[in-house]
Every structure is written in structure tokens, then in C-alpha cells.
Design a protein around this nucleic acid. Structure first.
Length: 102
DNA sequence: AGGGTGACGATCA
DNA sequence: ATGATCGCCACCC
């Protein structure tokens, strides 16, 4: 499970972002947002700064939150108040299931 | 084996 | 909008 979550996180391209819940769904575990958090903690080398809370909100506190914002802005991600402009930067994972015709 | 814990999310006051 | 609560669930004592 952690592997699948990690794999999903790795797919988020530079300049794009996603959310804990969306990553969980993309990995095939809807509702496992907390496990996404665990993966981010226990796995290194991930683009951790590209994972946000629902609505594009940074869920970290203190300095970490500041650093995350800086990293994102450095990749060209724009903010609207405290949130990321999701309409513009949210990464859409390829359909696990599919609108793939048959 | 059992209880506490979260970089969450949805809902309600 | 902010804060509390509840549901969730693998992980860590």
C-alpha cells in the first residue's frame, strides 16, 4: 500500500500539486489520506511540498509551512491567499478505472 | 492484544 | 472563517 501511494506521489510533475485525499484515491485507497501522510513521513526523496490539504491549503505549521510555500513558488505555483490556485495547478491523475472506452 | 496517534477530510456550531 | 468532533486506519509503542 505504501508503495502504491509513494508511486502516485512521484507522478506529480514539477509545477503541479495534488492533495492527500486525491493521492489516496489515485493509489486506489479512497479515504486513506492519513496513510498518504505516513508515506510522506516514512519515505524519502518525495516531492512532499507538492502535496496539499483539500482545497489547496498548506496543512503544515510554522517554518515547514513557510518552506513549502517557497518551494512551490520556486516551481511557479501561484497562490490565492493561503491557498494554491488549484484550478491552475492541480495535477489530474490518470483514471485508475476509466473513461477508456471498453 | 490494546490503546494512542496523525502534514486528513467532512460536517456542525 | 475558525474550532470542535467524528470517522478513518496503518503504525508505533
Amino acid at each position: 500500500m505504501r508503495e502504491r501511494i509513494v508511486a502516485a506521489i512521484r507522478k506529480i510533475p514539477r509545477g503541479k500539486v495534488s492533495t492527500y485525499g486525491a493521492v489516496a484515491r489515485a493509489a486506489g485507497y479512497p479515504g486513506a489520506a492519513r496513510q498518504v501522510v505516513r508515506a510522506l513521513h516514512t519515505s524519502m526523496g518525495l516531492p512532499w511540498h507538492r502535496v496539499l490539504g483539500v482545497g489547496g491549503e498548506i496543512k503544515l505549521r510554522g517554518d515547514s509551512a513557510f518552506e513549502q510555500r517557497l518551494r512551490l513558488e520556486a516551481e511557479g505555483v501561484t497562490f490565492r491567499g493561503r491557498r494554491v490556485n488549484m484550478s491552475q495547478h492541480e495535477f489530474k491523475f490518470p483514471r485508475p478505472k476509466a473513461t477508456r472506452k471498453r
